[in-house]
Design a protein around this nucleic acid. Structure first.
Lengths: 229, 229
DNA sequence: TTAATAAACGTAATATATACATTTATTTTT
DNA sequence: AAAAATAAATGTATATATTACGTTTATTAA
């Protein structure tokens, strides 16, 4: 190592994943029960130290794969958590990784032992500063759901407008007017209506839609700023 | 250290500050010329390793104080930069810190030796991944300037509407209609018009305004989302 | 055939955004 | 003292977006 770096103090760097899922109307968070001291038995986000040969992003993806078996998952950096005394075990910073999983898409989802989905509206106390991470991640989720079509990551590839509205009502904890919700959404021209209907929740059935990623990208590139709600 | 932590590999953690200033119509960035190998003589953002007894945020504030003598500076975390090979000297991650300084406010500003303001429109090549940090920070600046009254951090406490418009035109690299800019801005009701005028750029003079932080906070707390442009 | 259910649809009123030209306050020059 | 010069300040009409609110439709089950 170069001289220049001698006075740097090396410390432990972890990632912690704040993983949201959405299952039949309920927003959920993936947690696991710590098996080791300190704080054994406490509910925790799922994390890992980063390895010498990986970036933080790669560490996040690795953790997510180890836990769920999934590879193509929406993930973005949340923020760093670096208070000196945040971890009683050692000086250790953590980079929060915000992730979304569409539970109804993922046939292959095989959750590892000791890992459990928890309804966001009824979370246990978490270890360390993980409660704060969840608070921050929920704020991020709301921001993203408003300004990006990211809510769709939580739904199956084919979804109905009432399904999307229910998801938004869960995320924002408030009701939306169904006529205005639909009108605004469709006016963005980023959904493709399919011929099929989903009849699981009504006799009439609701048309299925897919997200038009190409159109969305074009709009974004033109600098179009949109708000879904 | 607890057993649990044994398999974590400790690494160097740095902060790099992307410090914007605005001086008489020009958006600037604070850079310094590296005095040490590797990459001696290369232009660099201003950074430091984080010390054992400080958080990343504290490290950012320390660096900013060491370089500029300032304490109360707007600073927020940008993102982490963690590619395995980002630094040829050693495995080292960096947390970018986005900072804004109002140059015309800061009478006390005493820039350290070797540190220089550079016009954002004419930046040199920077070392490591610092060019990417600047790109990311400019995107953040545009986002913040649109959705938060953060552009004001770059202006004196008392400023005119034409001054603010010129700043926005510099940030977004486009012209705004002065009638609509003024109308929208004033409709937000977060500016206090003073009796004084600034006559430095016209014979008529332009009224000075101050930001009404209290009103802004109230609006924010009510969930009001505003866009300044 | 009827009843039940959630999905789909439309419109009027209000608010916001855009496009665009003239007047005003002041200083400097004549 | 009057005229010229300068940037600041202002207004309005049009288009677009948001909000509030009830009725009809497609389908299944009784």
């Amino acid at each position: 190592m170069s001289d220049k770096y001698k006075h740097g103090e090396k410390i432990l760097v972890a990632v912690d994943c704040i993983i949201f899922g959405y299952d039949h109307g309920t927003l959920k968070l993936l947690l696991f029960k710590r098996l080791l001291e300190p704080l054994k038995g406490g509910w925790s986000l799922i994390g890992s130290f980063i390895l010498p040969n990986e970036s933080v992003e790669e560490a996040g993806k690795r953790v997510l794969h180890e836990i769920t078996g999934l590879d193509e998952v929406y993930m973005e950096e949340l923020k760093s958590y670096t208070a000196v005394d945040r971890d009683p075990g050692a000086r250790c910073i953590s980079i929060g990784q915000f992730a979304l999983i569409g539970l109804e898409n993922e046939e292959t989802l095989e959750i590892k032992d000791g890992v459990q989905w928890h309804s966001v509206s009824d979370l246990p106390e978490l270890v360390l500063d993980h409660n704060q991470m969840v608070v921050d991640a929920l704020a991020r989720l709301r921001n993203r759901a408003q300004y990006y079509p990211i809510g769709l990551e939580l739904l199956p590839k084919k979804f109905t407008i009432p399904q999307l509205q229910t998801l938004y009502e869960e995320i924002f904890q408030k009701k939306f007017d169904s006529r205005n919700f639909r009108k605004k959404l469709l006016s963005l021209n980023i959904l493709i209506q399919l011929k099929e209907k989903d009849k699981s929740s009504s006799k009439k059935g609701a048309f299925l839609y897919e997200f038009d990623y190409t159109k969305y990208r074009k709009l974004k590139n033109k600098g179009f700023k949109f708000s879904l709600i």
